[in-house]
């Protein structure tokens, strides 16, 4: 029964959706202080390369590799963040875009370490490692009636699912905390926020570093799910792709990037039946949406509307205040 439900293809797509959701949130976090960063693809690359190289050359467990990747990306985020956050709006976007390209060029030219544009293959695969570890304890997926590869993708999916839920939970909590209020204040009016006693530099760098941490984290996961990375994966196309998740879904609430990543990753897969035309439809949907809803699909009003609708039907959704998103 379980075996028939589990198709590695669907779990593969679901895994990419979850990784993209984390990437979407990373842009959303920096955007929630009103800073537009295009460096996330670069941070993602740092996380991916750090984790891949550490696990290959030093036989580090994947978990430690991923954490190290995220931390290195965050550290770099702080280093880059402090000087560049004096810039605003489009200037910051340009600098961060440039930074992302610098990272990519470093990956290409540091051949002794990164194998240049050929890329790194043979990165330990999360699912396969989980399986071999469990087999070491005498566990066999056949107990559950599953094939090896079904089990591999099920375990990756469940792991990523728990991680993603954790990430969403954390940032929703943060949003309603002092930090979240400070972010919102800075986004609305930096001068006013400063005069209210909010340490702008601290919170802006914090948001930037959080974004970098999350991108690096997602990048490390990406490396261990794909088992192969090359510098071309982290070019500016990727930065724009991640930004589109947020712009499409809406940047006001956390559900925006989540929905954006979910929808825009699933779309090309669902549209596979029209093969070469699918990216035309994909583009068309984005154009239509931007014309009709420039603020993104999901915003505060939509969420409030959904909530009041729910209440009218007499369902109890809890009493949380509606502005909490």
């Amino acid at each position: 029964m379980l075996a028939e439900l589990i198709n590695p293809y669907h779990f593969q797509v679901a895994s990419f959706i979850l990784i993209n959701i984390i990437l979407g949130i990373s842009v959303y976090i920096t955007l929630s202080t009103g800073q537009l960063s295009l460096a996330n693809a670069g941070f993602m690359g740092i996380g991916a390369y750090t984790s891949a190289l550490l696990t290959i050359h030093f036989d580090l467990p994947i978990v430690l590799g991923i954490i190290a990747g995220a931390l290195v990306a965050a550290l770099l985020g702080i280093l880059i963040g402090i000087p560049t956050l004096r810039l605003q709006g489009v200037y910051l976007a340009i600098v961060t875009l440039g930074f992302g390209e610098v990272i990519r060029v470093v990956f290409i030219n540091w051949e002794s370490l990164t194998k240049g544009s050929v890329g790194i293959s043979g990165i330990p695969h999360i699912g396969r490692e989980i399986l071999s570890t469990l087999k070491g304890f005498g566990f066999d997926p056949k107990v559950l009636g599953l094939q090896n590869n079904q089990f591999i993708f099920l375990s990756i999916f469940l792991l990523l699912f728990i991680i993603t839920i954790g990430v969403i939970w954390f940032f929703r909590r943060q949003h309603r905390s002092r930090v979240g209020r400070a972010f919102a204040a800075i986004k609305l009016d930096e001068k006013a926020a400063e005069s209210m006693g909010i340490n702008i530099t601290y919170y802006k760098v914090l948001a930037f570093a959080q974004g970098a941490l999350l991108s690096g984290f997602a990048g490390a996961l990406y490396a261990h799910v794909l088992a192969y990375i090359s510098p071309a994966d982290f070019a500016y196309h990727r930065a724009v792709e991640i930004l589109i998740f947020v712009v499409f879904g809406g940047s006001e609430v956390i559900w925006g990037p989540i929905f954006g990543a979910f929808f825009l990753t699933l779309m090309p897969e669902v549209l596979r039946f029209i093969s070469e035309y699918r990216y035309m439809i994909y583009g068309l949907i984005i154009i239509i949406l931007m014309a009709v809803r420039p603020q993104g699909l999901i915003d505060v009003n939509l969420l409030n509307w959904v909530k009041t609708k729910g209440k009218k039907r007499g369902q109890k959704h809890g009493t949380g205040n509606t502005k909490s998103m």
Partner: peptide, 8 residues
Amino acid sequence: LSACSGGG
């Protein structure tokens, strides 16, 4: 999951 099971 429901999106998945269709093709499966």
